[in-house]
């Protein structure tokens, strides 16, 4: 295998892993605060379509990016209001959010189908990407670098800052956090908003970077993989990075196998590979872990501030 091809494959892996990583880290923070938001896929779609629409209309992809985060965060706010203030069931509400996001993105996106858009350029000048090796280092979308910085930032936030400690405390025992005097709901609102913004960013990575176009259900279920990755990573940002790139590899294998005309297995099987890998990995993780899985103790439980 020549070096160029290897670089191309590695770049594809990074490209496939980045949205999973961004959305996954967002969901990780949400779950660490004790909220289970299954609406990641829906928020990603809202982000994807908003980003595309705004970038096409204004001509500035960066504005699209910001709009995507705001729109997905707005969707997350609806979710937060329903599950935190009105204490609706988190699983059902999350599923509803995904259905809502799928529908509303198709509606908004209808006029944009088949149009191309100005894409988000590269971060570094082209002079730096002359050789394959340099391309591997400098030739990625800004969001790839952002996702790596985000991993470190989330790790640092959760483990080294007081705000992160409080967020984990709220996810571990909402009643104890409340008894000490922390604003449980506020912390959870903020976490959910952050998760929404990250899902929106991950979504518009598809429409503004990976495939500069809009199609219905553009994200193709990757939001679900991001949620599974949180469990896979046992709520640790470092493992989230490893997991996202592992899935990036699986997704790339599928693409490469198709491109190479590999036809021993049905193409449907290859397409299903990332999802099969999700199931296998989750099963192996649960079997390998005896005892605590590092899951936040209050994950998915509604909190009513009484006593």
């Amino acid at each position: 295998m020549n070096f160029d091809l290897l670089v191309a494959i590695l770049m594809t892996i990074a490209g496939a892993a980045t949205p999973l990583l961004i959305a996954g880290l967002g969901e990780l923070v949400v779950e660490k605060s004790g909220v289970l938001n299954l609406g990641v896929e829906g928020m990603m779609l809202i982000g994807a379509v908003t980003g595309f629409a705004v970038a096409t209309t204004t001509g500035y992809p960066v504005i699209g990016l910001v709009a995507a985060m705001l729109a997905a965060a707005a969707a997350a706010l609806i979710f937060a209001f329903l599950v935190l203030t009105l204490m609706a069931n988190q699983v059902a509400t999350g599923l509803a959010l995904t259905i809502f996001g799928t529908g509303v993105s198709a509606l908004i996106g209808a006029p944009f189908v088949g149009i191309t858009t100005p894409t988000l350029g590269l971060l570094f000048p082209h002079a730096l990407t002359d050789t394959p090796l340099l391309r591997l280092i400098f030739g990625h979308s800004p969001l790839v670098y952002f996702s790596l910085i985000l991993t470190v930032a989330v790790f640092w936030f959760l483990n080294r800052t007081r705000a992160g400690l409080i967020l984990r405390a709220v996810g571990e025992s909402d009643s104890a956090a409340h008894a000490i005097g922390y604003p449980v709901l506020l912390v959870r609102y903020l976490a959910v908003l952050f998760g929404g913004a990250m899902a929106g960013l991950a979504g518009c990575y598809y429409s503004l970077v990976l495939t500069p176009m809009w199609a219905e259900r553009l994200t193709a279920g990757r939001g679900w993989i991001a949620i599974a990755l949180v469990v896979f990573a046992s709520w640790r940002p470092g493992r989230m990075l490893a997991g996202a790139y592992l899935f990036g590899l699986v997704i790339t294998m599928e693409l490469q196998a198709k491109a190479a005309g590999f036809n021993i297995l049905a193409p449907e099987f290859l397409a299903a590979l990332p999802y099969i890998a999700t199931i296998v990995v989750l099963a192996v993780i649960s079997a390998a872990k005896r005892g605590g899985t590092n899951a936040p103790a209050c994950l998915g439980k509604p909190f009513r501030a009484t006593a």
């Binding site: 007081r162 400690l165 409080i166 571990e172 104890a176 008894a179 605590g292």
Partner: peptide
């Protein structure tokens, strides 16, 4: 000092104290 402790099970003693 509570009768029913407001402690976080998955965290260390030190983290629990810092939270308080």
């Amino acid at each position: 000092v509570f009768q029913h402790f407001s402690l976080f099970e998955a965290m260390t003693v030190l983290e629990n104290i810092a939270l308080g």
